[in-house]
Amino acid sequence: MSDRGTLNRIIALRHNRAVWPLLALALILIVDGFISPNFFDIRIVEGRLFGNLIDILYRAVPAALIALGMAVVIGTKGIDLSVGSIIAICGAVIAWRIQAGDPHLLILFYALVAGAVCGVWNGFLVAGLGIQPIIATLVLMVAGRGIGLLINLFYGGTNPSFESELLQGLSTGNIWLIPTRLFVALGLFLALWALIRRTALGLFIEAVGGNAAASNLAGVNSRLVTFFAYVICGVMAAAAGVIMTADTHTSDPVSVAMYSELDAILAVVIGGASLAGGRVFLGMTVIGALVIQALTTSILISGLPPEYNLVIKALVVMAVLFLQSDNARSAISRLIPGGSR
């Protein structure tokens, strides 16, 4: 009797959208455990926790921050292809102002403002001029890295590397054995969550993404909401940019955060949101970013030749999305006798 209850509960779990990405994450980690026997070891090295699991969390931070901003934009039925370029611009701004000798706290502020300005630009094109998001953000995606290079050129930075206790502290430092960036990410996540869910902004974003015309008639200023979503995305990308730039101690506009927009979109989709807009899942987006990073890390430790990396990544991502597809799932349960309701 209780067996049946448990079974029913497990069957009901199938319909919980959190199950599949978490299952994928668990599977990836289990496979890692087989590949590398000491995969789950966590030690203390140089006054911080050290191990593969920590690495996955640590490396997932920038990707998760970008993806969170992307989730908001995708919620409005939009997309932001320019996040990688925003990171490039932020990096260049940081390197430039550090060479100029500004206080580093102020530089942190400048970097976030740079991201916000990029977001304002995207928001203006999409909400103000009504350009399709994929085209509107393509503009900055293409131009942004050039702008980063120009900033580097502008102050003659042939070697745009720098040292900053504050920024590197945020990025690669640690507090009580735990990498600081995890606190940074947690703080930003909670701030964004509060902004979206403790105010009515989330409802407005989802309403606008679901049906902009109806939202307008219901009194929601859909253009303003859309605009604001891009600004949020810009600021989140800038935060990721600070962490990535401080991590490598250098501004590298040409190649920093290459393809990060694709990983961010993927994380949002693995998190269960639809590119058709109308829903924002912040927590699940973070899980999505963790899935992608766990995958990247396990490919790196697998010892497979690098030629296989992208193919394996594509295959696993396909499998996750396949599991999430309702059509695929109902086809599977039709194949398994007794599996259907």
């Binding site: 009515a200 989802e206 679901g210 049906n211 109806a214 008639l217 219901a218 009194g219």
Partner: peptide, 24 residues
């Protein structure tokens, strides 16, 4: 096309206008 946000719940659709008037 103009009335409802199909993805959102009945509750969310009903409060939308009140919330829009009240501000975000």
């Amino acid at each position: 096309t103009e009335g409802l946000v199909g993805e959102l719940s009945i509750r969310e659709n009903i409060v939308l206008t009140m919330q829009a008037k009240g501000g975000w």
